[in-house]
C-alpha cells in the first residue's frame, strides 16, 4: 500500500503506520463480529426467501428420490383453478378486514382507559395483558371448550339475556366459526397493541393538553386535535403489525377447526402448510407462499402510502 501524498502531512510516518494498522484491525474485528449474525440471517431468511421464488416454479417434494424439475408456471395455473385457494383467500381477507379495526380500536380504548391517573391502573394493565403472554395454542384449546354448544360462552349468553337467546354451536357452524375465531384472536392480541398505544400516548407533551384546556376544548375536541394527531407514527405501526399478523392466521385454525366446517375457516397459510407439509408438495406450497408474500407486501405498501406523513 502506498502512502498518499498530502494526507495528514503533519503526522510522523511511524504514527501514521500505527494508525493505519489500528484501522485495519478495527475493520477486521468488526467483520468478525457481524459475520455470525449475517451468516445466520442469510442461511435462514435470505436463502429460504429466494428458494420460495425458485421452488414455486418446480415440482419439488419434501422427500423425493428424484431431483426437482422446472415446471414453469404450472403451479400457478393449478392454483388459479383451485377453489380452495379462493376460499382461503376470501377467509383470510375476511379475518383481516374485521380484526384490524376491531383490535386496533379496542386496543386504543384500553390504552386510554389505563392512561388515566386513577387507583389500580397498573392492576388493570396487567390483567388486560395476561392473554398476550398466554400461548395461542393454549388460548385456542381453551376457547374450543368455551365455544362448545353447551359451553361457558353459551351459558353466559343465556344468563345475560335471561334465557332468551340460545347460542349456536360456534365452531361447527360455517357462519359462526370465523366470527368466533375473530373474537378469540382479538381477546388474545389486543393487550399487546394497548401497550404500543400507551407508549405513543405518553410521548404526547402534556402542555398541549394544558393549552387545549385553556382554549376551553371539550374532551372530544381534545382527543381529535391533540391525541389523534400525536399518535400518527404509532397508528402506522399498529395498523401494519396487526395486518401482517392477521394475514398469517394459522395456529387458531390448526388447533380449533382444521379449516372446517366446509372450509369456512381455511386460510392461505393453513392451506400452504397442509399442501406443503401434510401432502409434502413443497413446490405447490411455495407457489401459495409466494402469492401470500406478494399480497402482504402489497397491502403493507398501500397502508404505508395511505398513512404517510402529509407535510
Amino acid at each position: 500500500m502506498s502512502t498518499r501524498p498530502g494526507a495528514a502531512a503533519d503526522v510522523p510516518p511511524t504514527r501514521r503506520a500505527t494508525q493505519r494498522r489500528a484501522r485495519r484491525r478495527e475493520s477486521l474485528a468488526a467483520l468478525g463480529m457481524v459475520s455470525p449474525a449475517v451468516f445466520l440471517l442469510v442461511m435462514f431468511i435470505v436463502i429460504p426467501v429466494v428458494l420460495a421464488f425458485a421452488l414455486a416454479f418446480t415440482n419439488a417434494r419434501l422427500v423425493s428420490p428424484t431431483p426437482a424439475q422446472f415446471t414453469g408456471v404450472q403451479n400457478f395455473r393449478v392454483l388459479l383453478d383451485d377453489p380452495l385457494f379462493y376460499k382461503s383467500l376470501r377467509n383470510t381477507f375476511y379475518f383481516a378486514v374485521v380484526v384490524v379495526p376491531l383490535q386496533g380500536g379496542l386496543a386504543l380504548v384500553l390504552a386510554l382507559l389505563v392512561n388515566a391517573k386513577v387507583k389500580g391502573v397498573n392492576f388493570f394493565r396487567t390483567v388486560y395483558f395476561l392473554p398476550v403472554v398466554t400461548s395461542m395454542v393454549v388460548v385456542s384449546i381453551l376457547w374450543t371448550l368455551l365455544y362448545q354448544k353447551t359451553g361457558l360462552i353459551n351459558e353466559l349468553i343465556s344468563h345475560l339475556t335471561l334465557g332468551l337467546v340460545q347460542g349456536p354451536d360456534w365452531l361447527n357452524n360455517p357462519s359462526t366459526a370465523m366470527p368466533a375465531i375473530i373474537v378469540m384472536s382479538v381477546w388474545q392480541g389486543v393487550g399487546f397493541h394497548m401497550i404500543i398505544w400507551l407508549a405513543g400516548l405518553q410521548t404526547i407533551p402534556q402542555d398541549l393538553y394544558e393549552a387545549a384546556d385553556i382554549d376551553g376544548a371539550t374532551r372530544w375536541t381534545r382527543f381529535w386535535h391533540v391525541t389523534w394527531p400525536g399518535l400518527s407514527a404509532t397508528r402506522t405501526f399498529v395498523l401494519i403489525t396487526i395486518t401482517i399478523n392477521a394475514f398469517a392466521l394459522f395456529t387458531q385454525i390448526s388447533v380449533m377447526t382444521q379449516g372446517g366446517p366446509l372450509d369456512s375457516t381455511s386460510t392461505v397459510v393453513y392451506q400452504a402448510v397442509r399442501t406443503g407439509y401434510s401432502q409434502q408438495q413443497t413446490g405447490y406450497a411455495s407457489a401459495i407462499s409466494l402469492v401470500f408474500f406478494v399480497l402482504v407486501l402489497a397491502v403493507s405498501l398501500v397502508q404505508r402510502f395511505l398513512t404517510r406523513e402529509k407535510d
Binding site: 429460504p48 428458494l51 421452488l55 401482517i244 400452504a272 402448510v273 407462499s289
Partner: peptide
C-alpha cells in the same frame, strides 16, 4: 449497507418462507 440489508429482512413474515425452509433444512 450491512445495516440496511439487516433491517430489510424485517419485511418478510416468517410464514411466507416457512415451507421452502423445511425443504432447505432437510
Amino acid at each position: 449497507i450491512v445495516l440496511t440489508a439487516v433491517i430489510a429482512t424485517l419485511i418478510v413474515p416468517f410464514e411466507t418462507f416457512a415451507l421452502p425452509m423445511v425443504w432447505w433444512v432437510n
